[in-house]
Amino acid sequence: MLLQTDVAVQVAEASQGGMKALAAAIAVGSTGIATGIAETAIGSAAVGATAENKDVFGLVLLLTVIPETIVIFGLVVALLMLF
Protein backbone atom coordinates (compact mmCIF):
# COMPACT_ATOMS: atom_id res chain seq x y z
CA MET A 1 0.00 0.00 0.00
CA LEU A 2 2.77 2.36 1.04
CA LEU A 3 4.76 1.44 -2.05
CA GLN A 4 1.77 2.16 -4.21
CA THR A 5 1.32 5.68 -2.87
CA ASP A 6 5.03 6.21 -3.31
CA VAL A 7 4.81 5.22 -6.95
CA ALA A 8 1.69 7.34 -7.38
CA VAL A 9 3.52 10.37 -5.97
CA GLN A 10 6.47 9.77 -8.27
CA VAL A 11 4.20 9.48 -11.28
CA ALA A 12 2.39 12.66 -10.31
CA GLU A 13 5.67 14.53 -9.90
CA ALA A 14 6.99 13.31 -13.22
CA SER A 15 3.85 14.33 -15.04
CA GLN A 16 3.97 17.70 -13.29
CA GLY A 17 7.50 18.18 -14.59
CA GLY A 18 6.40 17.17 -18.05
CA MET A 19 3.50 19.60 -17.94
CA LYS A 20 5.87 22.39 -16.91
CA ALA A 21 8.14 21.62 -19.82
CA LEU A 22 5.16 21.55 -22.18
CA ALA A 23 3.89 24.85 -20.83
CA ALA A 24 7.32 26.41 -21.27
CA ALA A 25 7.46 25.08 -24.82
CA ILE A 26 4.06 26.60 -25.59
CA ALA A 27 5.13 29.92 -24.07
CA VAL A 28 8.27 30.16 -26.20
CA GLY A 29 6.75 28.57 -29.31
CA SER A 30 3.59 30.61 -29.56
CA THR A 31 5.29 33.92 -28.76
CA GLY A 32 7.94 33.05 -31.32
CA ILE A 33 5.27 32.59 -33.97
CA ALA A 34 3.64 35.85 -32.94
CA THR A 35 6.96 37.68 -33.23
CA GLY A 36 7.50 36.11 -36.61
CA ILE A 37 4.13 37.26 -37.86
CA ALA A 38 4.73 40.78 -36.57
CA GLU A 39 8.21 40.95 -38.07
CA THR A 40 7.18 39.83 -41.56
CA ALA A 41 5.38 43.08 -42.30
CA ILE A 42 8.05 45.27 -40.74
CA GLY A 43 10.83 43.27 -42.34
CA SER A 44 9.50 43.56 -45.87
CA ALA A 45 8.85 47.27 -45.45
CA ALA A 46 12.35 47.63 -43.99
CA VAL A 47 13.96 45.92 -46.97
CA GLY A 48 11.97 48.17 -49.29
CA ALA A 49 13.03 51.28 -47.42
CA THR A 50 16.68 50.20 -47.41
CA ALA A 51 16.56 49.59 -51.14
CA GLU A 52 15.44 53.19 -51.64
CA ASN A 53 17.83 54.74 -49.15
CA LYS A 54 20.71 52.83 -47.60
CA ASP A 55 21.08 55.35 -44.76
CA VAL A 56 17.99 54.08 -42.97
CA PHE A 57 19.45 50.60 -42.50
CA GLY A 58 20.34 51.14 -38.84
CA LEU A 59 16.94 52.55 -38.06
CA VAL A 60 14.92 49.87 -39.82
CA LEU A 61 17.01 47.10 -38.32
CA LEU A 62 15.93 48.47 -34.99
CA LEU A 63 12.28 48.78 -36.01
CA THR A 64 12.37 45.18 -37.19
CA VAL A 65 13.45 43.86 -33.80
CA ILE A 66 10.80 45.74 -31.83
CA PRO A 67 8.33 42.80 -31.82
CA GLU A 68 11.10 40.64 -30.38
CA THR A 69 9.81 41.84 -27.02
CA ILE A 70 6.95 39.36 -27.43
CA VAL A 71 9.17 36.29 -27.70
CA ILE A 72 11.44 37.59 -24.96
CA PHE A 73 8.50 37.80 -22.60
CA GLY A 74 7.64 34.24 -23.65
CA LEU A 75 11.18 33.15 -22.90
CA VAL A 76 11.10 34.87 -19.52
CA VAL A 77 7.84 33.14 -18.61
CA ALA A 78 9.29 29.81 -19.70
CA LEU A 79 12.44 30.33 -17.67
CA LEU A 80 10.49 31.29 -14.57
CA MET A 81 8.37 28.18 -15.03
CA LEU A 82 11.33 25.84 -15.39
CA PHE A 83 13.60 27.12 -12.63
Binding site: E68, T69, I72, F73, L75, V76, L79
Partner: peptide, 13 residues
Amino acid sequence: VLSFARIVGIGLS
Protein backbone atom coordinates in the same frame (compact mmCIF):
# COMPACT_ATOMS: atom_id res chain seq x y z
CA VAL B 1 10.64 47.98 -16.86
CA LEU B 2 9.77 44.40 -17.76
CA SER B 3 11.24 44.95 -21.21
CA PHE B 4 14.65 44.90 -19.52
CA ALA B 5 14.02 41.20 -18.91
CA ARG B 6 15.44 40.77 -22.40
CA ILE B 7 18.85 41.20 -20.82
CA VAL B 8 18.32 37.93 -18.97
CA GLY B 9 16.47 36.19 -21.78
CA ILE B 10 19.02 36.82 -24.51
CA GLY B 11 21.92 36.36 -22.12
CA LEU B 12 20.68 32.97 -21.00
CA SER B 13 20.01 31.80 -24.53
